[in-house]
């Protein structure tokens, strides 16, 4: 079979018949190359994705002697009227509202710092990036000890505020989620920094030279050259951070004494998903949460693509 391919290729000008056998052989090879990944994708991505829709309209349970029954929109109604779901959703939104602006601005600042051509910048870039290669589960464990009532964070707070502010972070319904935000930022900001650094380096140097000849101040250069120049990078970073914030799970499962605690103050959508679909074995209802989650992620992605496309049209 393979020899026919080569033969056909070498003499591809000879005639139409040979050309079509070549095409056939090439297509055979192509399918042989594609099929391992294709089969895996069909089985473990496409099938479960379609199944999520189907299951979300049924009363399917993980292990159950009862026959599967079609229940219409019941799961969605249950999900959207459940206090746990909204608690999780609003915690995710709160997380997004704080982490997205703070982390993006922080990442941009770090990227600008390590983008200056000064000795040692590679070293600092490496250090800022190190938490990204720390497994979140391990980071969550380290930080739970740091956030201990008698831990290091409180020792620092005590010094900085002269003893006016210490709190039992992970046992406080107010402060547990902000503590996890800090962990999220600590672990994730290096990732964003690298993306923004690449974007910064793509801004043509000439633009800065032109701006400084025109007498633009540093702030004006940042405002009118840097920010427009890295627009797509910024949009990407913002969207990815939002999506990651909706996927928040590892910290809320590991850091509090009870997952999502204290008193559900760190409950998230993903915790609800795991507790419903896996903990309570309510596959049908869990699937409905998954679909709602997917719709959120999809809308964020579409908004991102739209913004990035507009940029393309302008230039």
């Amino acid at each position: 079979m393979t020899t026919a391919t080569e033969e056909g290729r070498r003499n591809s000008r000879r005639g139409k018949r040979q050309e079509s056998t070549t095409a056939k052989a090439e297509s055979k090879v192509a399918w042989a190359f594609s099929s391992p990944a294709l089969i895996l994708l069909l089985a473990f991505t496409v099938a479960p994705f379609l199944l999520a829709f189907i299951l979300s309209f049924t009363n399917q349970r993980l292990i159950s002697p009862l026959p599967t029954r079609f229940v219409g929109l019941d799961n969605y109604i249950d999900t959207l009227s459940s206090a746990n779901f909204w608690k999780g959703f609003f915690n995710n939104v709160w997380f997004v509202a704080v982490v997205v602006p703070v982390q993006t601005a922080f990442a941009l600042w770090l990227a600008i710092l390590v983008n200056r051509k000064i000795p040692g910048r590679v070293f600092f870039r490496t250090v800022f990036f190190l938490p990204v290669v720390t497994v979140m589960a391990a980071a969550a464990v380290i930080w739970s000890l740091l956030f201990n009532a008698n831990g290091l964070i409180n020792a620092i707070m005590e010094t900085v505020t002269f003893g006016n502010f210490t709190v039992d972070w992970l046992n406080s319904t107010t402060w547990a989620l902000p503590a996890m935000m800090l962990v999220g930022i600590w672990q994730g900001v290096g990732f964003q920094m690298v993306i923004l650094l690449a974007a910064l380096q793509d801004v043509p140097e000439v633009l800065y030279e032109a701006a400084s000849i025109d007498g633009a101040s540093r702030w004006q250069q940042f405002r009118n050259v840097t920010l427009p120049g890295i627009r797509n990078g910024l949009i990407f970073v913002v969207t990815v951070t939002m999506i990651l914030a909706f996927r928040l799970f590892d910290q809320v499962y590991i850091m509090p004494r009870v997952p999502g605690g204290p008193l559900d103050s760190t409950r998230t959508m993903m915790l609800d998903l795991v507790e419903t679909g896996f903990g309570a074995q309510a596959i049908g209802r869990g699937a409905s949460i998954a679909i709602v989650f997917f719709v959120i992620v999809l809308s964020l992605t579409l908004v991102q693509r739209r913004f990035i496309r507009e940029e393309g049209e302008v230039t």
């Binding site: 994705f49 998903l273 896996f278 997917f294």
Partner: peptide
């Protein structure tokens, strides 16, 4: 490689990138 369905496959792969694993976890 040139084969039928190639462009549809490329589009599908691009679409699949946005499905987060968490959305598949329960049915899986």
């Amino acid at each position: 490689l040139r084969f039928r369905g190639r462009f549809a496959l490329i589009a599908t792969i691009v679409a699949l990138i946005i499905i987060p694993f968490e959305a598949l976890a329960v049915p899986l």
